[in-house]
Amino acid sequence: MKILVCIKPVPDSESEIAIDDSKSWIKEINLFRMNRFDEFALEEALSIKDRDKNVKIDVISVGSAASKDVIKRALGMGADSGILIYTEDPGYISPYMTAGYIASYVKEKSYDIIFTGVMSEDYMHGQVGPFIAEMLGRPCASFVVKQEILYDSKCVYAEREIDGGLIEAVQVSLPAVFTIHSGINKPRYPSLSNMLRAGRTEIEIIDSNLISFPVLKQKIMLLTVPEKRREGVVLSGSVKEKAARLLHILSEKAFIN
């Protein structure tokens, strides 16, 4: 069985995000980590491999240098090999483009399962997985919170989280695409032996310019900083002063006695 896991680097939630001079993208960020949802997706693949050593896991990322680092981390967690679809432009890549690159790569291969995170933490589109499935004409289960391979019937039983505390259970024939939600497992840390192996493993690099597919025209015209929707009084002074001030406000409003 062959599994492909799609991963991407994201800036941390506490990173400073500033708009650049073009006003349509952000200033360069240096610190990235693996998208948390992708860690869950990768862990799901690794746990399948734990039970069956014949499973081979590839990870794929669309991007530049930061993508290389998350591929290395994925190898350190236990993936077998990594593919980078290299794009020179560090700007915004729409989910349709990302999916198009990955689907073009997958067309030539024979993956039984493709896992993606349910969305990326930074762009929050949630579209790459469903797009890949559609482009390949394969079934897709999104927002998966539990999955089990039914080897006899070449299916996956998957539970999806839909709204309002509801779970939708589906049986999906392989090959198929699954977008994995958070909380489905506890992603492992890279192991030392795997990290050493990752250091020696060559990442397959594919030039994105060599991949072509029909493009849907969509672009970011402008980035803005969200407006304040409430008063947003910022307390000033030392920690102690701020604490006293907040306490005063809360007792004035009779939240405390």
Binding site: P11, S13, I17, I19, I26, E121, D122, Y123, M124, L216, K217, Q218, K219, I220, M221, L222, L223, T224, V225, P226
Partner: peptide
């Protein structure tokens, strides 16, 4: 609308940034 272009606003980067996206479709 930004200029003459109809744009759709969505959050990015943990809600720190709004992106105004247009599509030709």
């Amino acid at each position: 609308k930004i200029g003459e272009t109809l744009c759709f606003r969505k959050q990015m980067f943990y809600g720190k940034i709004n992106a105004h996206i247009a599509a030709d479709s």
